[in-house]
């Protein structure tokens, strides 16, 4: 029992997206009103976005923006600095230690940052989704202007009789 519970908890993100997707798909298949179908399509889209974003998540990682300390030094500069630090070493060992700590701080660890790719894909998908939702609503307006209704069965009836 314990293991099943922990298994479900470890895959909770998939459960959330599947439930959202089922709601959206049901609205698209079973609803009679075109606007409700469009709403269902939007919910379906949200489910896919949630799925992608949850895939990009990593435990113990932060947002994909590097903690940086300015522009990375060109190689020549770094060598000069190393030389200067070697001379500094005669004056005091502390500065060298500080430099080493700084260098370790600048190194990028992959495990520290979440996967940026799903975020990139979904960023554009959200805006494109809004734009295509506009097209869907425009089509709905045209259908209403032509048939005087947004109910699918009434439109079908008019098509058959006319």
């Amino acid at each position: 029992m314990e293991s099943i519970f922990s298994l479900v908890l470890a895959k909770a993100n998939y459960a959330a997206y599947i439930i959202l997707m089922m709601i959206g798909l049901y609205a698209m298949i079973a609803k009679n009103n075109l606007i409700k179908k469009i709403v269902g399509m939007s919910i379906f889209q949200t489910a896919v976005i949630l799925f992608y974003v949850s895939i990009g998540c990593k435990k113990g990682a932060t947002i994909p923006i590097l903690r940086h300390h300015g522009h990375p030094e060109p190689v020549g500069h770094a060598a000069e600095n190393a030389g200067a630090h070697a001379m500094d070493a005669a004056h005091g060992a502390e500065k060298v230690v500080a430099h080493a700590v700084d260098a370790a701080h600048n190194a990028v660890h992959v495990a520290d940052y979440i996967n940026p790719l799903p975020h990139v894909l979904m960023l554009t998908a959200i805006v494109v989704g809004v734009a295509t939702l506009g097209v869907a609503l425009a089509l709905a307006i045209r259908v209403y202007n032509t048939y005087g209704t947004l109910e699918e069965d009434e439109i079908n009836q008019q098509l058959r009789s006319g």
């Binding site: 994909p64 923006i65 903690r67 940086h68 522009h71 990375p72 990028v108 992959v110 960023l123």
Partner: peptide
Amino acid sequence: IQHTMEDTAVPNIV
């Protein structure tokens, strides 16, 4: 994640 800084000098990987 590792090459963004040296390729493009942009800390925001996205």
